[in-house]
Simulated scan of single mutants.
Amino acid sequence: MPSDAAASGFSEPECKAVYRAIFERRDMRHFAGGSVAPEVMRRLLTAAHHAPSVGFMQPWRFVRISDAAVRADLHALVEQERVKTAQALGERQDAFMRLKVEGMRDAAELWAVALADGREAHVFGRRTLPQMDLASAACAIQNLWLAARAEGLGVGWVSLFDPSAVAALLHMPAGAEPIALLCIGPVHAFYEEPMLQKERWAKRCALDDLLFENAWGQALGSEAGAPSGTSTVHTP
């Protein structure tokens, strides 16, 4: 008889679809205009709203930017920060300025994601780690991102902005904090690899370099890292 855990697992095609969405998700910067049907956008937001959150605090708030003038103002704020970021990069300034870092003018939808005001009232899971509100909201964004990839839509997370300026522009209450401008919509094609890797700005780290056992820097599966009385685990 299969175990309860096995019985509750997805079928092989369903599992492959989940992993495909994970591995083919891209931070998109090139969009094809068009539109996103309201019912599809609702599905993406529902997926976001079903993310886990510490203490079930649900700190995420989403603001749709449908006014062209507001979108233009947000784009101007991003451009200001793009220049400041380039200046802060020193010798990599010119290389950074050649990168396309946002698709706000071409994406079908633009949504601001913010942490809600009043978050300090949520202590469960945050007394020593107050940043778990941000971690929870990031989970919501990832849910939306994976759902969008499954729907054939691109998403680009823009974080080049002054949070206080965006909060003021969108009339957010005191205590609310914008963390993302999400460009969402049809794309001509998904990147075969992360754009910044393709542009040789950075590359994905080797997984084994990020895995430790029992102590920081102790390689996973090493004899020194394995607890007494246990066998060594070798990862492929």
Rank of each mutant, 00 (worst) to 15 (best):
A147M: 13
R149Q: 12
A180C: 10
M172L: 15
E192Y: 00
Q93E: 11
L110V: 11
L153K: 09
R119A: 09
L115W: 06
R105C: 04
G90H: 01
I184C: 01
Q87P: 03
E177N: 10
A76E: 13
I179L: 15
L89T: 07
C139R: 01
S66A: 15
L146C: 09
V155R: 00
A150V: 03
G185K: 07
L89G: 09
L115F: 06
L129Q: 12
G175D: 15
A69E: 11
A135C: 14
A206H: 08
E199G: 02
K198F: 01
R119F: 08
K203C: 04
A69C: 05
D133K: 04
R82G: 05
L182E: 10
Q142I: 11
E120A: 14
K100M: 04
Q131W: 14
A108N: 05
Q87V: 15
H171Q: 13
A167I: 12
V113L: 15
R64P: 03
A147T: 11
E151F: 09
A176T: 14
G125I: 07
V83Q: 11
D209R: 05
I141A: 02
Q131M: 06
E102T: 12
L196G: 00
G118T: 04
A206V: 10
K198H: 09
V123T: 15
A116E: 14
V158G: 08
P163N: 13
C183Q: 14
A165M: 02
L211N: 07
A108M: 04
A137L: 03
D208K: 13
R149F: 13
Q80I: 02
C183F: 04
A168D: 09
H75K: 05
K84N: 06
I179G: 11
L207V: 14
L89M: 15
A114E: 02
L110G: 02
E79D: 01
P130S: 05
M104I: 10
A147P: 05
G152H: 02
V155L: 08
A174T: 13
T128A: 13
L99M: 15
L144G: 03
K100I: 08
A76Y: 09
F124I: 01
V70S: 00
W145I: 07
R127A: 12
A167G: 15
L170F: 06
D73N: 14
V78L: 02
S164K: 04
L211E: 02
L182V: 10
Q142Y: 08
R119G: 14
A176Y: 15
L160F: 11
A165V: 06
D133Y: 00
G90K: 00
H171S: 12
A148C: 07
D133V: 12
W111F: 12
A174I: 10
W201F: 10
V155S: 02
A168Y: 06
A112Q: 08
V166R: 03
A206L: 15
E79V: 14
L146K: 10
L74E: 00
G90E: 02
E120Q: 12
F124R: 11
D133P: 00
G175N: 12
R149V: 12
V166Y: 03
L115I: 15
E120I: 13
M132S: 04
G118F: 07
A189K: 14
Q197E: 09
K198V: 06
C139T: 05
R98S: 05
L146R: 02
Q93D: 00
L110M: 14
A148T: 03
